[in-house]
Write a protein that binds this DNA or RNA. Structure first.
Ligand code: MN
Ligand code: MN
Ligand code: ZN
Ligand code: ZN
Lengths: 129, 129
DNA sequence: CACTAAGTGAGAAAGATTCTCATATTGGGA
DNA sequence: TCCCAATATGAGAATCTTTCTCACTTAGTG
């Protein structure tokens, strides 16, 4: 593994929640100037391949990513306020399976993402109100 | 409503399944040359606003859209082979709700999309095998 | 008919991601 | 340790989708 990938991985582990490629690049070059944005994109592609990170939405056209503790199949609960992300088990509900069956559709993949406010941001919102 | 919007809506109704803005533009100008791509994008934005269409994925970086019969909250079952789309009811499964509750997260929005093969494409795949 | 708000077309612009290419590094095997 | 093929890197160009600008035309209301 190259030195750059190692630094990018470290920076990625330090990200608090959802982040874009540019967010991560900014953090990386604070510690190690000179690393290029293209290298960050390349590292991100590898991480996504391995399941170390996943797409959890988008922000103004940029892909939002987040670190995954689990590398097996799971989904995400994303705070739209602070970007914190929690991995969740999330088998398809019965209604979905029944609809698919009725249509004769063979489901090979599904995407589920939940958005809202995490406990902390929810408390803060209540306090402000 | 402008003449252009009417033509774009007609063309949209004739789309067989999932389509991109350019797919639709191509169809529109077959019937009515001169209508600009920007106008198609503007019409699509309005349709999405009204619930007449919805995003159902992406194809090589372009947003995939599909017509909705229902304008209320629902989700989609998309054939990755032919692009056919079926609307489905799809309340969150218990597992998802329990995960959110345990995390103290207030869920305000969720996205669910199922991908796979429709009945027709499935039959064709079996025949080929 | 007159007026205003909204829509239009063409192209420029914006922005994210990928590609190119010359150079540099890596890690394994001799 | 030295060599080499494979892979990674950095800088910027290129690509490509979507949005914006602006001068001009409609739609719709009264
Ligand atoms: Mn995860
Ligand atoms: Mn629908
Ligand atoms: Zn939060
Ligand atoms: Zn199909």
């Amino acid at each position: 593994m190259s030195a750059q990938r190692a630094r990018i991985a470290e920076a990625m582990l330090g990200m608090p929640g959802a982040f874009t490629a540019e967010d991560l690049h900014r953090r990386v070059i604070e510690v190690t100037p000179g690393i290029g944005l293209a290298t960050v994109y390349r590292a991100l592609a590898a991480m996504q391949e391995s399941g170390a990170i996943a797409t959890v939405g988008d922000r103004h056209g940029s892909t939002l990513l987040a670190r995954c503790e689990r590398h097996d199949h799971h989904h995400h609960l994303v705070c739209t306020e602070c970007g914190s992300v929690v991995g969740i088990d999330c088998p398809l509900g019965d209604a979905a399976l029944i609809s698919a069956e009725r249509a004769g559709h063979l489901v090979t993949r599904h995407e589920i993402t939940l958005y809202g406010l995490c406990a902390i941001c929810r408390a803060r919102a209540d306090g402000d109100a």
